[in-house]
Design a protein around this nucleic acid. Structure first.
Lengths: 219, 219
DNA sequence: GAATAAGGGGAGGTACCCCTCAGGTTTACA
DNA sequence: TGTAAACCTGAGGGGTACCTCCCCTTATTC
C-alpha cells in the first residue's frame, strides 16, 4: 500500500500527545502555505511549543513532513482508487490526473513533495516508487487501448506534475482553478489522434530520478 | 525596442571600470547557475572585490541583474527577429518558442527573470510588457491562419514558460535537451485541428500579472 | 608632485534559520 | 503522596545573507 506511513512512536504522556498534535496541525498549516522548506521555528511558534520540543517529537524535518502529509496521501489514494475503477481507460487516466492535481493544488508542501525525491529516506522512496508504478500502469492502460499516444512515458507525466506544480505556485492565490485548464490543454497533447513526432527521447529512469533529486537540492 | 537596457552610469576610473566588468562577469556566472537569488556576497567574492564595492557599482540586485542579462536579452531578440520573418505563421510560432526556450534553458537566472515580474521597477516592467505584446502577436498570427487553436491566450504561453522553467530547473544538469521534448508535446496541444474544449477560462491580464509577481515573492 | 575627488575595503549591525543540551517541570504509576 | 521517567524550555553556538558606513587608498588632473 502506498500511503502507509510508518507511525512515529506516539508519546506516552497526555501533555506530550497534545503537543504532538498541535505540532502536526501547525506543520500542516505552514507546509501547505510555504512549502517543504517552511521554518521549523515558525511551526514551533505556531504550535505554542518550544523549538526543543519540536525536535524531541520529530528529530528530522522529514519526520514532521510525513506526519503532516498523511491526510493528503490518504485523500489522494481514495481518489485514485475511484479512478482506476473507471471502465474507459482514457477516462480513468484523466480522472487519475485530475485527482492528483487537485490534491497537489491544495497544499504547497505536498506539491513540493510530489515533485522531488529524497534519497536516503527509505519511507519516502517507497512512496515515490509506488506512485511511479501506479502512474505508469494507468498510462499504459490508456495507451494499450489506443487512446493515449504511444510515445509518452512516465517521465512525461512526472514532467506534467512539475509543470502543474509550478503553475500552482504561481496561480494558487490568484486563479486557484487555473491548473485544470492547463491539465486539459496537456491532455490534448497526450491524445493518440493528435500525436506528432517528438524531437527528443523521454528521460531514462535514471535521468528522471536525478532530476527529481536535483529539484530538492536547488530550491 | 525590448532589449534596450538603460546603461548604468559607467564608472570613470580605470580600476573602477575593471572591477565593474569583473562584477558583471561573476554575476553572470552566479545568476546562471543559482538563479536570481544568488548570493551577492558570493558574487563579490568571485569577482575578487569587497561587498561594499559591489553595492557602490550596483545599489540594488536588479541593477546587477539587468547588467548581467543584457547579453541573454540580445541573444533572444536576435533569434526572435529571425522567427517573425518566417513566412508560415505556425512555423514562426514554433521557431519563436524554441528560441525563447533555448535561451531560457541556458541560464537559470534568466529563466527566473522570464517567469516573474518585478513591480516597482520601470525598466523590467517595460521589458516584460514588450515581451508579452510580442508573444501575443506571434500567437495571434498563427491563430488567424487557423493553425493554432483559437481558445488559447497569452496567459497560456506564459504558463508554458513557467512549465518550461520548472522542467529546466529539474533536468538542466541531467537531461539538458529534454525541454525540447516538452515543447513539442505542448505544441501538439496548441494545434487547431481536433482541439477539445477547455474547462476553465484563461487567466485575465490582472491574474496573470499577479501570478508572475507572486512567483517572485514565494521563492 | 600635490591636491582632490572617486573608489575600495570590510567590520559590524540586523535578521533569519538550524540544531543541541543542561537544567527545570510535569505526568504517571506504585 | 512520592519518585522516576518522560518531557519541556529556551539560551546559545554555528551558519548564511543583506546592507551600511567610516576610513583608507588610488587614479586623475593641474
Amino acid at each position: 500500500m502506498i500511503g502507509q506511513v510508518e507511525q512515529t512512536r506516539m508519546p506516552r504522556r497526555r501533555d506530550a500527545i497534545e503537543r504532538h498534535d498541535r505540532l502536526v496541525a501547525a506543520a500542516q498549516q505552514e507546509f501547505a502555505v510555504r512549502g517543504v522548506n517552511a521554518s521549523l521555528e515558525a511551526i514551533a511558534r505556531d504550535a505554542g511549543v518550544a523549538i526543543g520540543t519540536l525536535y524531541r517529537h520529530f528529530p528530522t524535518r522529514m519526520d514532521l513532513l510525513l506526519a503532516a502529509f498523511e491526510p493528503r496521501l490518504q485523500e489522494f489514494l481514495e481518489g485514485a482508487k475511484l479512478s482506476i475503477e473507471i471502465a474507459d481507460p482514457w477516462e480513468g487516466f484523466v480522472s487519475y490526473l485530475e485527482n492528483l492535481f487537485r490534491v497537489q493544488a491544495g497544499d504547497r508542501g505536498f506539491n513540493d513533495f510530489l515533485s522531488r525525491r529524497f534519497p536516503g529516506n527509505a519511507e519516502t522512496e517507497r512512496i515515490h516508487d509506488q506512485m511511479c508504478l501506479h502512474i505508469a500502469s494507468v498510462l499504459t492502460r490508456a495507451q494499450k487501448a489506443g487512446q493515449a499516444r504511444s510515445d509518452i512515458r512516465l517521465a512525461d507525466i512526472v514532467n506534467l506534475i512539475w509543470s502543474n506544480g509550478r503553475m500552482i505556485d504561481a496561480t494558487g492565490t490568484t486563479a486557484p482553478n487555473e491548473w485544470r485548464r492547463h491539465l486539459y490543454l496537456m491532455l490534448d497533447a497526450y491524445r493518440a489522434e493528435r500525436a506528432h513526432p517528438l524531437p527528443e527521447p523521454p528521460m531514462t529512469d535514471e535521468q528522471l530520478y536525478d532530476a527529481m533529486v536535483h529539484l530538492g537540492n536547488a530550491d
